[in-house]
């Protein structure tokens, strides 16, 4: 579904990705794990074709989505035409809009009937959002905001969802619930790339993983195999 080859990218003169290659197959959950500054978020932003200053400039390499290069596609078209979107780190929900407005905004380019079905599905997945539909979204708790961020991404009708640190700031109970929901969405056909600090949790739900370190991919493989590598255990799984 997604093929990244020899991707070099950076901010200004600082190179952040030194030629990474990875792929994602339809129906998979793939995780990128690594320490702070390893280049995980940078990778996701590059995939979404976001622009500086928040996102890096890709200097060489290729990103192919369903066989097509997306290097010249604008971010909003990546979302609306290619059905791939990002739930960014820090959630970035529109705090001055209500929960409902946030969700409707994400369905900007879509047929109403279609979007209405998705809306009901999202309210089923996250009943809390239905309860708070008319509330300004900056009054939501951290966990609810994360639900909204994911719900909003789903409203764009995405087939490939990129998630950046979905567990950040969540209590452990909520964290597990969040990942159970992701698993459920995956079983309904959604392909997911998830970037996580919590490597153990990520590897438990993911089919495959890539381990990043300072802008390079240093290990890859099925999650189970990665969990058995002693260095991975020591560095990311707490021994």
């Amino acid at each position: 579904m997604l093929n990244v080859e020899q991707l070099y990218a950076g901010y200004g003169r600082i190179e952040a990705l030194h030629g990474i290659s990875f792929h994602v197959k339809e129906g998979e959950i793939v995780t990128l794990i690594g320490a702070n500054g390893a280049g995980k978020s940078t990778t996701l932003k590059a995939l979404m074709r976001l622009k500086p200053p928040e996102a890096p400039v890709v200097t060489s390499g290729s990103i192919r989505y369903r066989g097509q290069s997306i290097m010249d596609v604008e971010t909003h078209q990546v979302v609306s035409r290619l059905n791939m979107t990002l739930a960014p780190e820090g959630r970035h929900i529109f705090g001055n809009l209500t929960v409902m407005e946030n969700l409707k905004l994400a369905a900007w380019t879509r047929q109403t009937a279609d979007a209405q079905n998705d809306l009901e599905h999202i309210f089923q997945l996250f009943p809390r959002l239905a309860e708070r539909a008319k509330q300004r979204s900056d009054t939501l708790s951290g966990g609810e905001q994360q639900m909204l961020a994911i719900g909003r991404a789903l409203m764009t009708n995405c087939a490939l969802l990129l998630l950046d640190e979905p567990s950040m700031g969540l209590a452990p109970v909520l964290m597990y619930e969040m990942f159970r929901t992701l698993k459920r969405l995956n079983s309904e056909g959604l392909t997911i790339i998830v970037v996580e600090q919590n490597a153990r949790l990520a590897l438990e739900v993911a089919d495959r993983g890539y381990i990043m370190d300072t802008g390079e991919i240093v290990a890859e493989g099925p999650s189970r195999d990665l969990m058995d590598i002693p260095e991975v255990k020591a560095a990311y799984l707490g021994g």
């Binding site: 979404m48 604008e74 909003h76 979107t85 970035h92 001055n96 994400a106 900007w108 991404a153």
Partner: peptide, 24 residues
């Protein structure tokens, strides 16, 4: 309106707008 909603959203967080498929 739909456009108005997008205008208000941009003022809060322009970064996330294209991620909704909206041409800023």
């Amino acid at each position: 309106s739909r456009f108005g909603m997008a205008m208000r959203a941009i003022s809060w967080d322009p970064f996330a707008i294209p991620l909704m498929g909206i041409p800023v």
